[in-house]
């Protein structure tokens, strides 16, 4: 269900970044419906366009410059919106990533640094618009660096953890296979194994992948 030309709404109070992101998205084959300066403008924009695939939100916007983007995401999810949401943040914060993903699937958390690499940004938008999950590689790295002595991730082999961190970055099995130079079938079986080891069996595939990533983010609490 890959979307050929995702229709995207963008909200960021920093004009330079807003323009940069819009250009990159257009260059990457997305249709930018509107660029907004404020989280408060998002709901009316959502209502005035049809078939929006993804929403790209700065986390820190007026009026308080704290977590407006996250608050908006949580409100949308509470209202039952399934739309893909990609949050952009200046800092790698595991707790914010966790909060974002806990709101539900089709959510991404990306550092603004990634804008330097337009491909990552556009890939992330495409992933969330088809319901996938994206966590910034730096956050994933932070999580894996931290000791996992008490976590269920212990049960995973090092290859499975590698696969899991790539899943967290939002890659599909085909993408993971390409990255690790493995056969797609091998990746499929790694994914199956790690989901089973994490006791994530009885749900749809995409939902299981989100839960696995959450497990990774929550590793320290288990």
């Amino acid at each position: 269900m890959t979307v050929a030309r995702p229709r995207v709404l963008l909200a960021d109070d920093a004009v330079l970044i807003r323009e940069g992101v819009a250009q990159l998205l257009r260059a990457g084959g997305c249709e930018v419906l509107a660029s907004l300066e404020d989280a408060d403008e998002v709901p009316s924009a959502l209502a005035s366009f049809d078939d929006i695939d993804a929403l790209v939100l700065d986390i820190r916007m007026p009026p308080t410059h704290t977590d407006e983007g996250l608050v908006l995401l949580e409100r949308l999810r509470a209202d039952g919106a399934q739309i893909g949401v990609l949050l952009l943040s200046m800092y790698a914060s595991p707790s914010l990533a966790l909060r974002a993903l806990s709101a539900g699937g089709a959510t991404g958390y990306l550092l603004k640094d990634r804008i330097r690499d337009g491909g990552t940004l556009v890939d992330a938008v495409r992933t969330v618009s088809r319901g996938g999950t994206v966590v910034d590689p730096e956050v994933v790295a932070l999580m894996l660096e931290a000791s996992t002595a008490t976590s269920r991730l212990d049960a995973l082999s090092s290859r499975e953890r590698e696969v899991l961190s790539l899943m967290a970055e939002g890659r599909s099995n085909v993408g993971i296979a390409k990255q690790l130079h493995l056969a797609v079938k091998t990746v499929d079986s790694h994914v199956d194994h790690l989901l089973t080891k994490l006791h994530l069996e009885a749900s749809t595939d995409e939902h299981r992948r989100v839960l696995a990533v959450l497990e990774l983010l929550r590793a320290r609490e288990a």
């Binding site: 330079l16 323009e19 940069g20 260059a27 603004k112 640094d113 330097r116 337009g118």
Partner: peptide, 9 residues
């Protein structure tokens, strides 16, 4: 960051 975006473009 916006310079990075322009370089990328």
């Amino acid at each position: 960051i916006s310079t990075g975006a322009k370089l990328n473009l």
